[in-house]
Amino acid sequence: MSDINTIIKPENLTYKRTEVLSDNDLSYCPGCGHGTVHKLIAEVIEEMDIQDTTIGIAPVGCSVLAYNYLEIDWQQAAHGRAPALATAVKRLMPEKNVFSYQGDGDLAAIGTAETIHACNRGENIVMIFINNGIYGMTGGQMAPTTLPGMPASTCPAGRDVSHDGEPIKISEILAQLPGTCYVTRQSVHTAANVRKTKKALRKAFENQKANKGTSLVEVVSNCNSGWKMTPVKSNEWMEENMFPYYPLGDIKNK
């Protein structure tokens, strides 16, 4: 029948799980982009050989337990405060590599001040921003990035922009600040996009090594539980609805 057993040999290995990922099963829902981004960060850390010098700052939200999944030192921050923690960690240990990992509620609502000022000071850190347009952990409430008309548990009839305002394009705002050196918006819903996001993450960490300032990598991602869709359907919906509002690509690259 098949000759796969002759192919499954060490010399033919082309893709395997990086050892920077822990052996723990992810707590995320099936198909959630968090896992894909975690994996990419782990791969970049492995490829740059910076596992022993990288400190991650985990947020509040679905990725509050991110520290269970990457084999690096971690600090878990209060909601929205990750950029403040990262600021101090990097300033006190400039030789280390520091990144924050934050969702839309964390980075663009409760932590807006910490986000803007860390970027404005040009803190030499990487900020990884998962934008899925909803509060996933608390059960699908409206986020600062929820699309106009998009339903959420605190706007069941859909976001009414006359009542709640337009969704915030925080990356565009942060790109205006002189302290940011690199602001990009990516996704992980296709293999090609995963490869691009990995390149963006690599660039962000290389910027930190080169002391260039703040790098922000936004990943527009899915929340199939919050959006109440299958994983595959949520990726399609994201392409049709999220990308027109949050177009992919580099917003700033200097």
Binding site: A78, R81, A84, A88, V89, A113, E114, H117
Partner: peptide, 11 residues
């Protein structure tokens, strides 16, 4: 002060 105390946490 919110940022200050959280910088203290990080450090």
């Amino acid at each position: 002060e919110i940022a200050s105390i959280n910088m203290v946490y990080g450090g």
